[in-house]
Write a protein that binds this DNA or RNA. Structure first.
Length: 676
RNA sequence: GGCGGGGUAGCUCAGAUGGUUAGAGCGUUGGAUUCAUAACCCAAAGGUCGGCAGUUCGAUUCUGCUCCCCGCUACCA
């Protein structure tokens, strides 16, 4: 840490296609903000950079759905996201966006340098092309019937109804989401970064950072072990940073190429010395991210920087795991989230409470769970009972007994010595925790000051000695005020709004980290402005309201998922007649090795025994299937899966809860019997 | 299936390069107190550290196998 003259802190660029929720905050913005606020208190040279990632396919799809331009969509969410962060006191030095002109320039320069130096591999592949819209279609832009669950509306990369991962060519009746026309395969050229060539250097880089968190190195090593593959750094799309080469109409940079460069381009908008923060050897780069971004920040971006040659690699990538909500994964599409803009309406002025609750159960080492009950407990038993109460006691006692003026302090007794001895260790421990990204521990340490305060007051009992020895009582309260001042500094990174309130109440105009442990911060004679209650109890009803809201959401989503799927388009009889559906008997069944979902079935079709693979291993035990008659599609084109050819498809009926049932004749039928 | 992360007090989580009584906060119970938002303070109870085997004088900490949760990845004709 001492080897570096400045620190460049980034927080993941958030995708500008929706509002933000507590998961985002807990995942990287809150820890980053705590870290940065701490460094600023230490008077370090630090910049804090983040922004929105505004390119990529999902935004164009959202725009098309809403009848807007992609720019309109990102403009809306940029503002909303930026606003939420501001409200929560996330103290970015700049909150930028990747649709900005400066960003386009910086990432194009970056790309061009790699291009000119021959760092890319050009490759022509066949991609779906929409002849009406005259453009190539990204996977997400192609819809069709899912080959697995047969439902319409599956995307080229995934069917959201059954969760199957797809490739666009697998879709039945593929359609362009743009024009509705049938897409055709057409060759297109793209530029690949040969990550495999950088693997040895990346391995060295990772090996030189043994101090990284185990979840980070674990994930990275897993990728390295599988062997890196060249990755396309360009896409056929109209929305994004155009490729700065001739004849590349309709091609843009891959979002994960331009997004991390966003950190750099945003820095450029912040300060003319932007290059120093990214290129100087004594600049320390720290990326705060969620675990879903590990590979991009620890492998792909570093590989880009190595290829470029001018940039420093990240010194730390403190990635958090995920924050769950009431036991379930947070999900935007399922509306299972606590949205920041809604929280601000429901709990006005309580940003610090959420900051505190999220930090206290931050997913630093494993997925954590946010519950409203826990939120209430953290507020009532810690913020109110420990911190708020201590502060209130100190102010009220001085208001009542000393007319709101800080009394002078005399020579302390054993109690004061004990107190100072207890406090003296806190700063070093707190620093160690913060510098090692252990924000949960750090928060407990900062709160320790208030705990010590309560203990001190209970032992010194100034309200008792007031009558017989005013000066001694004054001394106790002077010490108490010094503790409040120290708490306002130690807690500044975590609950900045409350810390600020405290400092105003104490008349502190300047403050710095080095005041921790100092009992001379507030001088006797200072007039205090009682800030009133710092935190208020949160009643059961308020919390219950939030839980009810979530329960309702869940009920609604369940209802929606239970609705019977819409009917498919009418087909001609001839089309139906093409399908050879038959009855057969399963004579043998076994689990496919190395597969979670596949069963290998031997089906007697009346002529021979054929092999059919079926993705039902999670629904049926192999031994329960043997001897059962089933309905199967007999003339489906064979397809190889995991090295074995599947000759047909078993028909399954799916229940509302997703469970499967065999489609069987209601009496024994001879094997090979047809279904019409 | 492969890879990674995790399984420690009622709850949320720390921790141990293997060694005397395994920690914190909250919760529970008892006590003390009234300056304070029935808050604070003191104390106690509570854990065969996921399971089985191995290495070792000794393992919760190391190794192997196994079960459960989460993520990435392959896979659902």
């Amino acid at each position: 840490m001492s080897d570096f003259s400045r620190t460049t802190v980034t927080a993941a660029l958030i995708y500008a296609n929706g509002p933000i929720h507590i998961g985002h905050l807990a995942g990287c913005y809150l820890p980053a903000d705590i870290y940065v606020r701490y460094l600023r208190l230490q008077k370090k040279d630090v910049i804090f950079v983040s922004g929105t990632d505004e390119h990529g396919v999902p935004i164009t799809i959202k725009a098309a759905k809403e009848g807007k331009t992609p720019q309109q969509v990102v403009d809306y969410y940029y503002k909303e996201i930026k606003d939420s962060f501001e409200q929560f006191g996330i103290s970015f030095d700049i909150y930028g966006r990747t649709s900005d002109r400066v960003h386009h320039e910086v990432s194009q320069e970056f790309f061009l340098k790699l291009y000119k130096e021959g760092k890319f591999v050009e490759e022509v592949t066949e991609q779906f092309y929409d002849e009406e819209a005259k453009q190539f279609l990204a996977d997400r832009y192609i819809t069709g019937d899912c080959p697995s669950c047969k439902q319409p509306g599956a995307y080229g990369d995934q069917c959201e109804k059954c969760g199957t991962t797809l490739s666009p060519t697998e879709l039945v009746n593929p359609k362009s989401a743009l024009s509705g026309s049938k897409p055709v395969l057409k060759p297109t050229k793209n530029w690949f970064l040969p990550l495999d060539q950088w693997q040895p250097e990346l391995e060295k880089y990772i090996a030189s950072h043994l101090e990284w968190k185990s979840n980070v190195t674990g994930q990275v090593k897993s990728w390295l072990q599988e062997g890196l593959k060249p990755r396309a750094m360009t896409r056929d799309l109209n929305w994004g940073v155009p490729i700065p080469l001739p004849d590349t109409e309709g091609k843009v940079l891959y979002v994960w190429f331009d997004a991390p460069i966003g950190y750099v381009s945003m820095t450029k908008q912040l300060t003319p010395e932007w290059e120093t923060y990214w290129k100087a050897k004594d600049s320390r780069i720290v990326h705060f991210i969620g675990k879903d971004n590990i590979v991009f920040h620890c492998l792909i971006f570093p590989a880009m920087c190595m290829a470029h040659g001018g940039y420093q690699l990240a010194d730390q990538v403190p990635a958090n795991e995920f924050m769950n909500l009431e036991g379930d994964k947070i999900s935007t599409s399922r509306n299972w989230a606590v949205w920041l803009h809604e929280y601000l309406v429901d709990f006005p002025g309580k940003q610090d409470v959420l900051r505190y609750a999220l930090t206290a159960s931050s997913p630093e080492t494993k997925d954590a769970d946010f519950t409203w009950a826990d939120f209430q407990t953290k507020n009532n038993s810690e913020l109110v009972a420990i911190l708020g109460n201590f502060v209130n006691r100190a102010f009220v006692l001085i208001d009542k007994n000393f007319n709101s003026v800080v009394p002078p302090k005399l020579e302390g007794t054993g109690l004061e010595a004990d107190l100072m001895a207890a406090v003296v260790d806190i700063p070093a421990k707190l620093e160690a925790a913060l510098e090692n990204y252990k924000f949960r521990d750090a928060l407990v340490l900062a709160m320790e000051i208030a705990r010590l305060g309560n203990k001190y007051l209970a032992e010194a009992e100034p309200w008792k000695i007031m009558k017989e020895d005013t000066a001694k009582a004054g001394t106790v309260l002077n010490y108490a005020v010094q503790l409040v001042a120290q708490a306002s500094i130690a807690l500044e990174p975590f609950i900045p709004f409350s810390a600020h309130k405290l400092r105003s109440a104490l008349g502190m105009t300047s403050f710095e980290w080095s005041s921790l442990g100092n009992f001379e911060v507030i001088s006797a004679g200072t007039a205090l402005q009682n800030p009133g209650l710092l935190f208020e109890k949160i009643e059961d009803e308020e919390v219950q309201k939030q839980v009810d809201k979530l329960t309702q959401t869940k009920a609604q989503m369940e209802l929606a998922s239970k609705s019977v799927p819409a009917l498919k388009e009418t087909v001609a009889f001839d089309d139906f007649a093409k399908m050879d559906i038959r009855i057969g008997e399963i004579v043998a069944a076994e689990k496919m090795e190395k597969s979670k979902k596949l069963l290998k079935l031997q089906v007697n079709d009346g002529f021979v025994t054929r092999t059919i693979l079926s993705g039902i291993a999670e629904h049926f035990a192999p031994e329960d299937l043997v001897g059962k008659q089933v309905t199967f599609l007999a003339n489906l084109a064979p397809r190889k899966m995991m090295g074995i050819e599947s000759e047909g498809m078993i028909l399954m009926a799916e229940d509302a809860d997703g469970s499967l049932a065999l489609v069987q004749p209601n009496k024994q039928i001879w094997n090979g019997g047809t279904v019409n």
